[in-house]
């Protein structure tokens, strides 16, 4: 890893954000989180009348639905912000006319992407913290906090999200589309990754689909670190699964990105 490129990319990203921070976009993301929490609140209190089935308790490993849904929503916001921005980096360079000058420089792409991921993570943590404060008003309670599990969950989530961002970035750069690809992925994540309800409620094929997206386990791990419900061995097993899945995405994503970069540069001409 090239630390010069890594640090320079973080610095460049922060300088650009300071001059042109997309405040409305940030507010939009927090609002999405707010609406998801509000929707869950209304359903739970007025539709389910505060009653949870046994199957929910069995699969979610908690009886606190609002905290369950709020952790899911916060993680969802985190994924949307990091994934979206990291995967958009190259297509943004292409649109702003800096892709060629970037590709002319002889540096390793990994440092560039990690720099963008780190910069975005720092910004997203701030936004997620704001959304978490809103969640408290809707009944978000951290009932069984485990710092060790929390650090592991954060690290593995970022690892998995980085891999997912690379793959999404490849799709975006290849299709030169950001809107359809990102929204499709985020809709799928919301449906099959256990954001506001346990994935076990879905048909088996969709559960399998959810299992190959490195968000499902990340959300479960994060919930376990805040709300409990998993034994140490279960946590370790899920953590290992998330690590393997993230590795597969990164190992496949990096060379694929390089290939797609070449295609993008050729498409600029052809």
């Amino acid at each position: 890893m090239n630390f010069k490129v890594f640090c320079a990319t973080i610095k460049k990203g922060i300088q650009i954000r300071i001059r042109a921070y997309p405040v409305s976009f940030m507010v939009g993301c927090i609002l999405t989180s707010f609406y998801t929490i509000l929707g869950s609140y209304l359903m739970y209190h007025y539709f389910f009348l505060g009653q949870l089935s046994e199957s929910f308790e069995l699969n979610a490993r908690t009886t606190d639905y609002m905290s369950y849904a709020i952790v899911g929503s916060l993680m969802y916001q985190f994924i949307v912000r990091t994934c979206l921005n990291v995967s958009r980096t190259l297509i943004t360079e292409l649109r702003e006319g800096t892709l060629e000058s970037l590709m002319l420089a002889p540096f390793k792409r990994t440092s560039y992407f990690l720099g963008n991921m780190t910069m975005q993570t720092v910004l997203t943590i701030g936004e997620t913290a704001v959304a978490a404060v809103i969640g408290i008003a809707f009944g978000f309670r951290i009932s069984d906090f485990n710092l060790y599990h929390f650090i592991v969950a954060i690290s593995l989530s970022l690892y998995g999200f980085f891999g997912l961002s690379l793959m999404l970035g490849c799709v975006m750069l290849y299709t030169r589309d950001t809107y359809i690809s990102q929204n499709t992925l985020f809709a799928i994540i919301f449906l099959v990754c256990g954001i506001t309800f346990p994935k076990e409620a879905l048909p088996y094929c969709l559960q399998l689909f959810g299992n190959v997206i490195p968000v499902t386990d990340a959300v479960t791990l994060m919930r376990a670190s805040l709300l409990g419900g998993l034994t140490d061995s279960e946590f370790l097993y899920l953590g290992l699964q998330e690590f393997i899945l993230g590795t597969i995405y990164i190992v496949a994503g990096m060379p694929l990105m390089k290939h797609v970069e070449h295609i993008a540069l050729e498409q600029m001409e052809g």
């Binding site: 490129v5 610095k11 460049k12």
Partner: peptide, 16 residues
Amino acid sequence: RLTAYENLWYYGQLYG
């Protein structure tokens, strides 16, 4: 969105 100096500094970093 970067200044002239920041642009040159960033590209300089990419070239190590």
